[in-house]
Design a protein around this nucleic acid. Sequence first.
DNA 1: AATGAATGAGCTTTCATTCAT
DNA 2: GATGAATGAAAGCTCATTCAT
Lengths: 229, 229, 229, 229
Amino acid sequence: MFRFGYDGVMSSVTSAGTAVRPLRKDAERNRALILGAAREVYAAQGLDAGFDEIARAAGVGVGTVYRRFPERGDLVEALFEQEIDAVVARVEQAAADPDPWRGLGDFLRWGAEAQAADRGLAQVLAAAGRGHERVAAGRDRLRPAVEALVRHAQQAGVLRDDVTEVDLGIALAMISQLGDAGSSDLRDRYVTLVLDGLAVRRDGPTPLPPAQPSEDDLACVVAPARRHR
Amino acid sequence: MFRFGYDGVMSSVTSAGTAVRPLRKDAERNRALILGAAREVYAAQGLDAGFDEIARAAGVGVGTVYRRFPERGDLVEALFEQEIDAVVARVEQAAADPDPWRGLGDFLRWGAEAQAADRGLAQVLAAAGRGHERVAAGRDRLRPAVEALVRHAQQAGVLRDDVTEVDLGIALAMISQLGDAGSSDLRDRYVTLVLDGLAVRRDGPTPLPPAQPSEDDLACVVAPARRHR
Amino acid sequence: MFRFGYDGVMSSVTSAGTAVRPLRKDAERNRALILGAAREVYAAQGLDAGFDEIARAAGVGVGTVYRRFPERGDLVEALFEQEIDAVVARVEQAAADPDPWRGLGDFLRWGAEAQAADRGLAQVLAAAGRGHERVAAGRDRLRPAVEALVRHAQQAGVLRDDVTEVDLGIALAMISQLGDAGSSDLRDRYVTLVLDGLAVRRDGPTPLPPAQPSEDDLACVVAPARRHR
Amino acid sequence: MFRFGYDGVMSSVTSAGTAVRPLRKDAERNRALILGAAREVYAAQGLDAGFDEIARAAGVGVGTVYRRFPERGDLVEALFEQEIDAVVARVEQAAADPDPWRGLGDFLRWGAEAQAADRGLAQVLAAAGRGHERVAAGRDRLRPAVEALVRHAQQAGVLRDDVTEVDLGIALAMISQLGDAGSSDLRDRYVTLVLDGLAVRRDGPTPLPPAQPSEDDLACVVAPARRHR
DNA sequence: AATGAATGAGCTTTCATTCAT
DNA sequence: GATGAATGAAAGCTCATTCAT
């Protein structure tokens, strides 16, 4: 589903392969607790959540969070690094689909759901260019996978030739604007619309689920960019 | 261009026609000052800006802002009411275009620019369902105009039949995710993509400006949902 | 005795004569409360005391302290400005003494007591060169008075000619090292020693009070530069 | 010059001769490392420096510092014990000078420099009475030496008869107020002043180096009791 | 015994809202 | 009705000390 589990990779080796001194066992455990809690809290509240709250959710002291992630960006980066793995996996799966168009659609639908379920993920992914080393490294891992997905679909003649890997990322960002309020069906509706825009050619529109968005779906489907308290 | 001017309508009468006790002249003047300042401040900083800042920009005390708009939502609503007029005007202009497809495209392009230029507008529009009375009233004025735009385009056989007025609002919201960092050309690229999705049928893709989004356009085009400090 | 009272000067005019917009009456009252509390707290604990404590002592919220004195230095400066008035007054009184030597001695003895009674004063005076505008202004007011004191004593042929106003300040700083633990008599002992160093010539030592410093007077007379917790 | 070297005395036996269970060899090594580091860190930052910093400088864990010196005072005491040896040596050298006045002066000048060079030493010496057993023991070793110095100078008729060993300690403490900012010459100026106060009689003032303390020497010569941040 | 990770109280600072003037 | 000073809860962060490894 849409939870990104801790991948179990010992953090003594970052995904990029850089070797660092392994953490003590308890420190490692806490690091994992913190990342897990951060994911949960960020998912629910977005990246603005305070360290205090994350610490409480993780069952550790604030100091511990600060020790492990001296600045907020460090935590976001570490989270990004974990989540990027899940995204990469999903992209590769999509690229491997014998029907490239279905693969592409599945990926976008998944992205819509994942971002709807995890407010923080959407922000982290939107930040995919900012931040530094590790985020860059994450993007470096992501890029080839998305490129493959795009290439396959283009070679199959279903995805328009003038879009690139970057465009797919931006499409995902636009889709993330669909918040978590509406139904999954409703989100599909707009993913389908975007997909129709990405298609090489169409003889007619792809049927849009659901039948009709209700009058106040607008009210509820758009991501509450920010509560107006 | 993308500034929404104060429409001059005495606020002693809401657009919906409800009569309320008119404000003293100086109070009315302050109300206008505050709304003007709010638009300016919200445009630059988004709806998170504090009342303090708005008060300073308006040249009044914070207390005055609170008296006039007891809660933040009230101010957003009042702003929405003003801005909705500009949007309505733009939609009507679009609907009047002899070429309905061009009208639709022009409107979306305008919406992309307007929201890029005014961070608060994007949030206000996204909030188009929340809030109560006055927002509802605003939407009531907006709906027919957008419906006309949609109907015209559909009757001309260019806009797919399965989209409604609501879908256009949501499309606008998705587009608002494209922040103000990239070029206008870059924004057009994605508006074009969405338009291609909205078209009834296409024999091929509409050329996308600009030639190619650079690798880090992703970084800069997506609206910084929130700085991660 | 060694308390420096609020001088009652409306703070709408700084001692240096610069005119500023007068504070609202209640703000002025709070300002005075804060300064009074700060003096009390600083006297007892030194300049390291937190704003929280001062706010509590003053009976106002922390925010009020921050509003009035955005950074710690501002508060110290304001305090310095008030206290400098008391010092100037004392110096002038000393300089007016028909017996210049007695005047000088009285002043140093007073300085020893005042600094013993107010740990913060000692630090503020020691800072007499650091800090900025207002401190500089304070020193400018202080200098002529001390110069007069020095000049009178030198013209009377009792104070050595090779010392200046600056030396007196430094002597005071050295004396401040005698904390508040010992008796006033004990402090006098060392003031007398310094005075004997400042005298033009002596046929013999001036009698030192008290008879004999006890073995552990050393322990208790020296200012606890810092508790070793 | 003003560094106090570790005297090499095995600390398994306190200077006072009390036998305690000897430490394991590695523990003993760590103890020495910690003391060395503490001296260095305290010299630079004063006694407020945290155990963390000392541990890092010593290359051991904080826990080790706490095990060896359960409270800060213990470390200060141990340091005092080491440094007292250097002071004793210097006092004895001064007392042995054929010219007792020169000996006394040299000692005070040395004390001024040593304390200026080592912010922690000044505080440790000022603490010469607080703390318990070991400090008392240290003082017991120091006292006779200083008494000898005083006695010699008094017998030679140059040092006033009404001062004692204790007074010399306090004079040193006063001198320590002269920080490390000014020149050595400047410090000499005030040592000379104090010496003039200690002299039995003078026909005139001893020339004070340097010619004139500049206006802002006051600012820089006085030990910054504490930064006001 | 050594280690350094964990702790959490405490201090600083901000800011949305209230309220005395 | 207008003002902006006051408020105090809340968030950020540090650091002396403890304790699991």
